[in-house]
């Protein structure tokens, strides 16, 4: 029997791959090892990483949140729009926060109380969030950040030459780590992902926990949206149609968090995010155009899912009917 902490777990493979890739890129690619580039890597990864943290919390408890990118872009855009319209800061923030929490609750409600498969619940809610905000609340595809806003300052902020969002990613990681490791509901999340029926039978409050997980995911998405705004000084809602969503799933799956739930943790997200960050950056330096990058990423994700299913095989006799 394999002992804990021994052998080639997926997590270690990923970490080793990240190291190897880093060394190869550093030696082979001009400008990769440049400090500015390294900062860019971590920076590019921090938004993705924060999103992936939320996704991880949902996936560990057996679920998935496809509305994340939509929530990120649309909550951010609506917030900026309200600021541009001259609404007071506090009111705008509170309104959007309430909206985001509501979306998380709605996702959780559909999944927990409506028995809707998470995939469909969040696919639908993502479309609704985009459609609602796009058609009702914001005027154009791209919403700029009003000049002189604190987000602008946040985006420029450096702590010992390192952009502040790296620290934010670290902070979010720590919080999620503490949640998953030291809180009762965090520990329960693993039980719930491992065997939902058993968790429910022994009296774990699976339904309220579902609500909480989707709210966490939505809040992290909003945070990622604010961070994007602070980086780019605007929010482009076209990000919805980009492959960002697949990148998030890629980070989580490649990091070693099984899609059937119950496995993995914050370490896996950080590892996966670093690997993907290095890979994307290397491809950009190699001047691979965006559409080819998409193809490569998708193929890697497919490979990751295949490996995931080989390492966490589904049992024909116990697999839940309708679990697609």
């Amino acid at each position: 029997m394999e002992q804990r902490g021994q052998g080639w777990t997926q997590e270690r493979i990923v970490f080793a791959l990240a190291v190897v890739l880093f060394i190869v890129a550093a030696l082979g690619l001009r400008g990769f090892a440049d400090p500015n580039n390294l900062i860019a890597i971590v920076r590019s990864v921090s938004v993705l990483g924060i999103l992936a943290l939320g996704m991880a919390v949902v996936i560990i408890g057996r679920g998935i949140d496809l509305s994340q990118v939509s929530v990120m872009a649309m909550s951010g855009a609506w917030y900026l729009q309200m600021l541009n319209d001259g609404r007071p800061e506090g009111m705008a923030l509170l309104t959007v926060l309430a909206f985001v929490v509501f979306i998380g609750l709605a996702n959780g409600f559909l999944v927990a109380y409506g028995d809707v498969p998470p995939i469909f619940a969040t696919l639908a809610s993502g479309a609704v969030v985009y459609g609602l905000v796009r058609s009702q609340f914001i005027g154009s595809e791209t919403v700029p950040l009003p000049p002189g806003h604190w987000l602008e300052a946040l985006g420029r902020m450096r702590l010992v030459t390192v952009p502040v969002e790296v620290f934010l990613f670290a902070g979010a990681s720590l919080l999620i780590f503490l949640f998953l490791r030291y809180t009762t509901w965090g520990r329960y999340t693993y039980l719930m992902g491992d065997n939902f029926q058993a968790a429910r039978t022994i009296g774990i409050p699976v339904r309220p926990m579902n609500l909480l997980r989707y709210v966490i995911s939505a809040l992290l998405a909003f945070a990622a949206g604010l961070l994007t705004a602070s980086n780019l000084f605007s929010i482009n809602t076209r990000v919805i149609t980009s492959t960002l969503l697949y990148d998030i799933i890629l980070v989580v799956v490649i990091g070693g968090i099984g899609l059937s739930g119950g496995k993995g943790g914050v370490r896996n997200v950080v590892g996966g995010a670093l690997l993907i960050g290095i890979m994307l950056n290397a491809m950009t330096i190699l001047d691979i155009s965006n559409i080819y990058q998409n193809l490569i990423k998708a193929i890697i994700l497919l490979a990751a899912i295949i490996i995931d299913s080989l390492m966490n095989p589904r049992d024909e006799q116990t697999a839940q009917q309708g679990d697609i």
Binding site: S125, A127, V128, Y130, G131, L132, R134, S135
Partner: peptide, 10 residues
């Protein structure tokens, strides 16, 4: 307007 479709579909 743009987005209404997605909202209704969702």
């Amino acid at each position: 307007g743009t987005g209404t479709n997605q909202m209704v579909l969702g």
